[in-house]
Design a protein around this nucleic acid. Structure first.
Length: 451
DNA sequence: TCATCTCGCACGTTTGAACCGG
DNA sequence: ACCGGTTCAAACGTGCGAGATG
């Protein structure tokens, strides 16, 4: 976990925000509520949310280990009580790229996490049916720790190795199209490809924060945001056991590396015939070493026309084609990312994790550092859209801040904008009441679990 | 010494601005 | 002025490997 020691010298290597987890393997569910009480006790908004998120479980809560995956020992998911979701009972969700996920989970999916945030591959891609076409919904994703262990790669498989670290700050990724009508969500598969994972607890980009060498289960939540069935028309949560993954900062299982290279188009360059394949990389290194030898034995100008030129041809021509990357003149300090012109991109997290943005100061960082407002980006989404987004949210979502993260605009920027033109953007989402729901009656065993 | 993490690199893909013609 | 298609450069997403860290 990235944790700048200069900012937390008094804390050593762990976070004092919450008390140590209960002793023993994992965090027993029986003690969960007691444990949850220590999450931001000054800002506990659970009572306000009870009516709105009856089915959402706090991200910080642990799921027991699931069987059948290559992550060492575990225990089966316990059957839960019947779901009490208030969404239409026929709401179903299926994993679009389930086959790919199963291929990965068969050998133990690993997800790279970085300070800057790394996308998931495979990505979460789901299809939804049974929504009210005219009602508005938000689609959210979070990840929950599985089991209570830290894991270690033992050459052939993952094995539990010690107790899990304290859960990182809870965050939820909101699909950029949210809120949208049921018809919109059902029209085509919904992809969460923009979702990123990070191990940086100070992350200002709204990525989901996780610990390295831990196991997580993504969850997809459908939250009613108004419409024919009324504001805050309930919620439903879905998990797909095959999407469990282990977080790493570098791949441990070479099989996973190979599968990612084969399946991920962004890693095409590392395929056998690619210019970045092992063979090509080694050849490049040899050429470079040879070139250095040449430079060492002759003057700089000499080397350019000397006998070693032929070995440099490819490298020099490539470098000429790709000069050192300089910021584009129109590029602000925070370069605008690809945007969805029709939707708001937002993230939600507990206010305390925003370092005293509008609430209690948090040990996770200093307000000044987090709130330095960058120059506004020319592609910043217009304010009326933010306003529309807020209008969609139920009035009962009070007490917590939602930081609008629009079209690649940094959250601090958006927050500043919101402060200047709009009343604080409240989003009473965290923490939802701690409940676990099992599959509805008659739900096929092969279907994803409905929490 | 070892396991883990961070960073820079090179490559391929994606994205959006600029340009052009109808 | 508008629209649709094309081109191109920058931004972004990858895994790798060296070096740092605890």
């Amino acid at each position: 976990m990235y944790h700048p020691p200069e900012m937390f010298p008094q804390y050593g290597g762990s976070y004092p925000l919450r008390p140590p987890p209960p002793p023993g393997a994992g965090y027993p569910q029986s003690q969960a509520s007691q444990y949850e009480a220590f999450r931001y006790p000054d800002l506990d908004a659970a009572p306000k949310l009870d009516s709105f998120f009856p089915g959402l479980e706090p991200p910080g809560r642990l799921l027991p280990s699931a069987p059948g995956l290559s992550y060492g020992s575990g225990q089966p998911l316990p059957p839960g009580p019947s779901p009490t979701t208030r969404l239409p009972p026929g709401v179903r969700m299926s994993l679009e790229n389930g086959e790919l996920w199963k291929r990965f989970s068969g050998i133990g999916t690993e997800m790279i996490i970085t300070k800057a945030g790394r996308r998931m591959f495979p990505q979460l891609k789901v299809s939804i049916t049974g929504l009210d076409p005219e009602a508005k919904y938000l689609l959210l994703v979070d990840v929950v720790p599985v089991g209570g262990s830290r894991y270690k790669w033992h050459g052939k498989q993952w094995e539990a190795s010690g107790k899990a670290e304290l859960p990182p700050p809870d965050r939820v990724y909101i699909h950029p199209d949210s809120p949208a009508t049921g018809a919109h969500w059902m029209r085509q598969p919904v992809s969460f490809h923009r979702l990123k994972l990070t191990n940086n607890t100070l992350d200002p980009h709204g990525h989901l924060i996780v610990h390295s060498m831990h196991r997580y289960q993504p969850r997809v939540h459908v939250v009613g945001a108004g419409g024919r069935r009324g504001a805050g028309g309930g919620c439903a949560s879905f998990t797909f056991p095959e999407t469990q993954f282990l977080t790493v900062t570098a791949y441990q299982n070479p099989q996973i590396t190979q599968m990612k290279i084969e399946s991920n188009p962004f890693a095409k360059g590392f395929r056998e015939n690619g210019m970045n394949s092992k063979r090509e990389r080694e050849a490049r290194i040899k050429r470079k070493m040879k070139a250095n030898e040449c430079e060492a034995t002759m003057g700089e100008t000499e080397s350019k026309k000397g006998p070693c030129d032929s070995t440099l041809t490819e490298e020099t021509s490539l470098e000429q084609q790709q000069p050192p990357a300089l910021p584009h003149p129109s590029c602000s300090f925070y370069p605008p990312a690809g945007t969805n012109p029709n939707g708001a991109e937002a993230y939600v997290q507990h206010p305390a994790a925003f370092h005293g943005l509008r609430g209690t100061p948090s040990p996770y960082g200093s307000p000044s550092q987090e709130m330095a407002a960058p120059p506004s980006s020319p592609t910043t989404k217009s304010l009326p859209e933010q306003s529309d987004f807020r209008a969609m949210l139920p009035t009962s979502w009070n007490g917590l801040d939602i930081i609008p993260f629009l079209g690649g605009t940094e959250p601090s920027d958006a927050a500043t904008t919101a402060n200047s033109s709009f009343p604080p953007f409240k989003f009473s989402f965290y923490p939802p009441p701690p409940r676990v729901y099992g599959p509805p009656a008659g739900y096929p065993a092969s279907q994803p679990h409905m929490l």
